[in-house]
Design a protein around this nucleic acid. Structure first.
Length: 438
RNA sequence: UCCUCGGUAGCUCAAUUGGCAGAGCGGGUGACUGUUAAUCACUAGGUUCGGGGUUCAAGUCCCUGCCGAGGAGCCA
């Protein structure tokens, strides 16, 4: 008998097939039992009718508990009453494994409890929807860059020193010395860009900051493209093109999942080029105006020259209905490697992309400083040990060129596109300040 | 590190002014031929986070510790 994935049942109407899966839920009513069976690709309602299958099989069907693993053999039937449109008329049932006292019942649960059982929570339909969209986004990202001639270079996870001095790093023993878990592959991608022209890395990064908010993970996935001979404008074009492509792909291929999540798709359909590009100083004006109109709102008050807080970001984004790219931040609040604008020496040739609906920063990018002596000065200004950066300075000694890139936070992007509340649901097994298991 | 809130049955929560520890779901048993988180009846299930205190009496008030959540800062 042919084994069929539930998502393909429509191709087998009228035939007797086998589904291999787990019991999602069941309902019994005297002489008829409904088994909702999932196999990872979908859920199908299997009808067990006592007069058809006999006493023994009927009692077996009634005995199955939630998440019992089983093989179901039956005839595929189109039925308007069934969720999904197809049903299985059961002819035989084979139990594979028991499931006693499955902790996640079909009723409500709190986030903490569900996160404690994350390894089981992954079986639920909502988590399926989110993680399928995550998969689609990853696939879209790789397609987008691969189709444009980028080379995927993976950066190391163990690193000898900090990329951005202020951020806290996870420290590990590395034989007789110390190593840190990477917080960015960017510096290595700069080396890659000088070798291959267009490269990207896409892997986990680690931040040991004690951030307890729904926008923070200690381990998260970051995409970091880097391109030789690219300037700030090209960088923003690259970021904008990526985001519009990702949104388009999800809207095209993950309709079912967006419906499961009850995502307002009209908000995603607006995500088309061009995105607003706003100078930092224009943002100061926007924030000034808002602060004057709302003098009692303490969090909205702002001093031009400072970095934005969460409230400031949402005030800026609320003026538009698309992602906003803020460029020319003050050099004083940005990383050492960012190149300054020769026309505006106190500002960097960098940008942040802020997602709509208050989801915050999803991309940060810049042109990199390409002059050897200027970069040395910046390293000194930031109190970084120059000896650790000799290889990085080599990139400026041997054929330095203008180049730029950005970092995109995968989970923040997934959270925004899914329209969900917690960043932690956007990754299979989240790592947070207070959670390292399961 | 700081601010706010929380910890009661397996889960989600309730418990009036300090006065007998409760419900729904889930589990078990039974009824029912079309259920959509099925329904109905019965049933088992408790160190109210730990420690100390006030009181005739504490889930409730006070002190303290632990754990967690949300937010700030920082960032993707």
């Amino acid at each position: 008998m042919e084994r069929v994935r539930i998502e393909n049942l429509g191709d087998h109407v009228g035939k007797e097939i086998e589904v291999a899966g787990w019991l999602y839920n069941s309902r019994s009513s005297g002489k008829i039992t409904f088994l909702l069976v999932r196999d990872g690709s979908g859920v199908v309602q299997c009808v067990v009718f006592k007069p058809d299958v006999g006493e023994e099989l009927f009692e077996l069907a009634k005995s199955f508990t939630q998440e019992t693993s089983l093989l179901v053999q039956g005839t595929v039937r189109e039925d308007k009453r069934a969720p999904g449109g197809y049903e299985l008329n059961v002819t035989n049932l084979i139990k594979v494994g028991d499931s006693v006292d499955y902790p996640i019942s079909p009723k409500e649960h709190g986030t903490t409890f569900l996160m404690d059982h994350r390894h089981l929570w992954l079986r639920s339909s909502r988590q399926h929807a989110i993680l399928r969209i995550r998969h689609e986004i990853i696939h879209a990202i790789r397609d987008h860059f691969n189709n444009q001639g980028f080379i995927n270079l993976d950066a190391p996870i163990f690193t000898p020193n900090a990329v951005e001095g202020t951020t806290t790093l996870f420290e590990t023993d590395y034989f007789d010395t110390k190593a840190y878990l990477t917080q960015s592959g960017q510096l290595y991608m700069e080396a890659g860009a000088m070798a291959f022209g267009k490269v990207y890395c896409f892997g986990p990064t680690f931040r040991a900051e004690k951030s307890k908010t729904r926008r923070h993970l200690t381990e998260f996935w970051m995409l970091e493209p880097e391109v030789a001979y690219m300037t700030l404008e090209g960088d923003m074009n690259l970021a904008e093109g990526l985001i519009t492509y990702i949104v388009e792909r999800v809207l095209e291929k993950r309709q079912e999942e967006l419906k499961t999540l009850e995502r307002d798709q009209s908000l995603l359909e607006r995500i088309i080029s061009p995105f607003p590009r706003v100078h930092y100083k224009e943002c100061c004006d926007i924030l000034d105006e808002y602060a004057k109109a709302h003098p009692d709102e303490e969090e909205a008050q702002f001093t031009c020259g400072d970095d934005f807080g969460a409230r400031h970001e949402s005030i800026i984004v609320e003026k538009f209905d698309k992602p906003v790219m803020v460029h020319h931040f003050p050099a004083a609040i940005k990383a050492f490697y960012m190149k300054r604008d020769p026309q505006e020496l106190d500002a960097v040739l960098g940008f942040d992309m802020l997602a709509p609906e208050g989801y915050g920063e999803i991309i940060g990018g810049s042109e990199r400083e390409d002059d050897l002596e200027t970069l040395r000065t910046r390293i000194k200004e930031h109190d970084l040990p120059e000896e650790n950066f000799q290889w990085y300075l080599d990139l400026r000694r041997y054929g330095s060129v203008p180049h730029a890139g950005f970092g995109l936070g995968l989970e923040r992007t997934v959270t925004w596109i899914c329209g969900i509340h917690h960043l932690r649901e956007a990754i299979p097994l989240p790592r947070m300040m207070h959670r390292i298991s399961p």
